[in-house]
Computed example of a mutant assay.
Amino acid sequence: MQADAIDQVIKSAIEVMESSKYQIFDLAENARHERNELMKEQEEVKAEAIKTIDLVDKLELDLRRSRIRLSEVSRDFRRFHEADIKTAYDNANLMQLQLTLMREKENHLRTRRDELQKRIKSADKLVQRAERIVFQMDIVLGYLSGDLSEVSHILETAKNRQMLGLKIILAQEEERRRIAREIHDGMAQTLANLVLRSEIAERLLAKQEYDVVKEELQVLKSQVRGGLEEVRKMIFNLRPMALDDLGLVPAVRKYAQDFEERTRILTKLEVKGKEMRLPSGMEAAIFRLIQEAFSNVFKHAKATFVEVELLFGMDYIHVKFSDNGIGFNVGKTEQIITNGTNFGILGMRERLDLLEGKMEIVSEINLGTKINMEIPIRPQNKEENTDG
């Protein structure tokens, strides 16, 4: 009877999730269609801006000629009559008016271009979120659509290797999406804007408007520096160079500094004991544990202060992580972890299991959170002796 009841619940959940998945898919398609329309309009605005700039150039040339003509007829009263002077004056005024209107149109097109760029970026984010949700729902539906005995087995063994494999797949896909999103929203947009601004600067240079060109070049320089900084941050997030070159402590110190600058959450790092180099794989695993703890604070804790303590012992390294955030109910969270839905803490526990370490979490509502991790270490020289 319990199996039948569970089977019915699962079937109902599958129907609801299938319906929701297609609704989310429709939202993604609508957002994608809107993005394509915005990109098409952006291309039209760009083409119109180029035409307007060319027309402004022509009008400026015509205005110079009309002013020269007005100057000529104004000086020579013997050759030209009052009607000639009036005609030259009217032409000069007309050229000035048309030039003013075209310059206003050019400014309007630039503003519209920037607005379209922001809307395209927003539509991209909506599409990516919807695709991520559909992807996660497909994974869940794949498990729920299997045999009831298999589902029961998964529920009873939430911490086994299948859950670890699922978490790794999700983490890999999420990381790929994050990297693609960072490149698209960061460097790709920056490079596209640089191309457009360089074209504008080139045209302004041809018109000898050096002050405006100087301002455009300053903006270009600022954007190049920002893009370079984004690339450096992406490289550090993928694999901190300091971790291989200098070791665990410098890499953690650099990450804590970047975390404080990025989130405005005050951080403090304290190192105790005799610092030593560890095997590369162990240093990477401990760094990822600390990185995940920082990520959890940023996503959930609403903290203003984070403290990390690294204590190097003879046979163990202790990592103490604490924050002054809103805290949480440890018992309920542990239950969620058992069900395999909290991948942040679950991933930390699984990393520690691979390192033969252990973790203790102490937290209360509105009293912050403390995480104590203890990891057995074997320095590189001891490993070499063991291998020999």
Rank of each mutant, 00 (worst) to 15 (best):
A3G: 09
I6W: 15
V16R: 05
S19A: 14
Q23H: 02
F25T: 01
E37W: 05
E41D: 15
K51P: 04
K51D: 10
L55W: 04
D57W: 06
K58A: 05
E60P: 00
L63N: 02
R64N: 09
R65T: 07
F77E: 06
H81K: 10
D84F: 11
N91F: 03
N93L: 14
Q96C: 09
Q98Y: 14
Q98S: 13
M102C: 06
R103P: 00
E106W: 00
E106Y: 03
N107C: 05
H108V: 07
T111N: 05
L116N: 03
K121F: 08
S122N: 10
A123S: 10
A130I: 03
E131H: 14
E131T: 01
V134G: 04
V134T: 14
F135G: 01
I139S: 08
Y143A: 01
Y143G: 07
S149C: 09
S149A: 15
E150F: 00
H153G: 14
K159M: 13
R161L: 07
M163Q: 10
E174K: 11
I179R: 11
I179G: 02
H184Q: 06
A188K: 04
A188H: 10
A192C: 10
N193Y: 01
N193W: 06
L196M: 15
R197M: 14
I200E: 04
L204F: 15
L205I: 13
K207P: 01
Q208C: 08
V212L: 12
L217F: 15
K221E: 08
S222I: 05
R225N: 07
V231S: 05
M234Y: 07
I235S: 11
F236E: 11
D245Q: 15
L246Q: 10
L248T: 00
V249P: 05
A251V: 05
Y255S: 04
Y255G: 03
R262H: 14
I265W: 02
K268R: 14
L269Q: 00
E275H: 07
S280D: 11
G281V: 10
G281H: 11
F287I: 03
A293Q: 05
F294S: 01
V297K: 03
A301E: 07
V308S: 02
L311Y: 06
M314H: 13
V319A: 09
V319S: 06
K320V: 12
S322T: 10
G327F: 02
N329G: 05
G331L: 07
K332V: 03
T333A: 03
Q335C: 05
I336K: 06
I336Q: 02
I337E: 01
G340F: 06
F343T: 15
L346K: 00
G347D: 03
L354F: 07
L355H: 06
G357M: 07
I361K: 04
E364A: 09
I365M: 02
L367I: 02
K370V: 14
I371R: 05
R378Y: 09
P379A: 01
K382Y: 08
E383N: 08
T386R: 11
